[in-house]
Simulated scan of single mutants.
Amino acid sequence: MRTNKKTLAAGFGAAGLLGLGLYVAVPAAAANPSPSPSTSAKAQPRKDHPRAARAIRGLRGVHGEATVKRKDGYHLATWQRGQVTGRSGAALTVRSTDGATWTWTTDAKTRVRENGAKSTLSALANGDQVLVFGERSGTTRTAAFIREPKKR
C-alpha cells in the first residue's frame, strides 16, 4: 500500500510541473508572429502576450526559448529581457544582463507597449530596458511584442 501512495504523490508532482511548464510556455507562443501563406485565415489581434509577459516577469528570467506545438506544426517561441543597444531600420538589438546579445527583426505587426500604454518602435532608444517576445526561425528572431516597463 505504501508504494501506491508514493506512486500517486510522484504522479501528482509530475502533473504539477507539467502544468507549470504549460502555463509559462503556451501563452508566450500562442500567436504566430510570422506571416502565414494562408489566404482564408483572417488576421486576429494578438491579446495573449501581456499574459505571457506577466508569467515571465514573475520568473525573473533573462532570456529563453521553448518549442511549442500548434495546429500548423512546431514553432520556437523565444523571449529576452535586456537593454536596447541598437536600432537600425527593422532591426532591434537587445543585450541581456548575462551578456547574451540578440538582434530582433520587427515589422508592422510588432506591438510595442511603454509604461502600460500603446507605443511605437521609434519611441525605443538605446539604454531602454525592454522585454521582447517573438519567434525564432533558423537564426532570425522576429519580435511580436516589445514591452518597456514603467520607469521608476
Rank of each mutant, 00 (worst) to 15 (best):
Met1Thr: 10
Thr3Asn: 12
Asn4Ala: 15
Asn4Val: 10
Lys5Cys: 06
Lys5Val: 08
Thr7Arg: 15
Thr7Ala: 15
Phe12Ser: 10
Phe12Ile: 08
Gly13Pro: 05
Ala14Met: 14
Ala14His: 12
Ala15Gly: 15
Gly16Ile: 04
Gly16Trp: 08
Leu17Lys: 04
Leu18Gly: 14
Gly19His: 10
Leu20His: 03
Leu22Glu: 07
Leu22Asn: 04
Tyr23Ala: 12
Tyr23Asn: 08
Pro27Met: 07
Ala28Met: 07
Ala31Trp: 06
Ala31Tyr: 06
Pro33Met: 09
Pro33Tyr: 09
Ser34Val: 15
Ser34Ala: 14
Pro35Gly: 12
Pro35Ile: 11
Ser36Tyr: 05
Ser38Arg: 10
Ser38Val: 09
Thr39His: 09
Thr39Trp: 08
Ala41Leu: 11
Ala43Thr: 02
Gln44Cys: 04
Gln44Asn: 09
Arg46Lys: 06
Arg46Tyr: 00
Lys47Glu: 04
Lys47Pro: 02
Lys47Met: 08
Asp48Trp: 01
Arg54Asp: 00
Ala55Phe: 00
Ile56Met: 05
Gly58Cys: 01
Arg60Ala: 03
Gly61Cys: 02
His63Ala: 11
His63Val: 01
Ala66Ile: 01
Ala66Gly: 03
Ala66Asn: 04
Val68Gly: 01
Lys69Ile: 11
Arg70Phe: 02
Lys71Ile: 01
Asp72Ile: 01
Asp72Ser: 15
Asp72Glu: 15
Tyr74Phe: 13
Tyr74Ile: 07
His75Arg: 15
Leu76Met: 12
Leu76Asp: 14
Thr78Pro: 08
Trp79Val: 04
Trp79Tyr: 09
Gln80Trp: 03
Arg81Gln: 11
Gly82Phe: 10
Gln83Val: 15
Val84Ala: 10
Gly86Val: 07
Arg87Lys: 15
Ser88Leu: 09
Ser88Pro: 04
Ala90Gln: 12
Ala91Asn: 15
Leu92Gln: 10
Thr93Asn: 04
Arg95Met: 08
Thr97His: 10
Asp98Tyr: 02
Ala100Trp: 07
Thr101Val: 13
Trp102Phe: 11
Trp102Ala: 11
Trp104Leu: 06
Thr105Val: 06
Thr106Glu: 04
Thr106Gly: 10
Thr110Gln: 02
Arg111Ile: 00
Val112Ser: 01
Ala117Trp: 06
Ser119Ala: 08
Ser122Val: 05
Ala123Lys: 13
Leu124Gly: 01
Gly127Glu: 00
Asp128Ile: 07
Leu131Ile: 06
Leu131Lys: 03
Val132Gln: 09
Gly134Val: 02
Arg136Ile: 00
Gly138Asn: 07
Arg141Cys: 07
Ala143Asn: 06
Ile146Thr: 06
Glu148Thr: 11
Glu148Met: 14
Lys151Val: 15
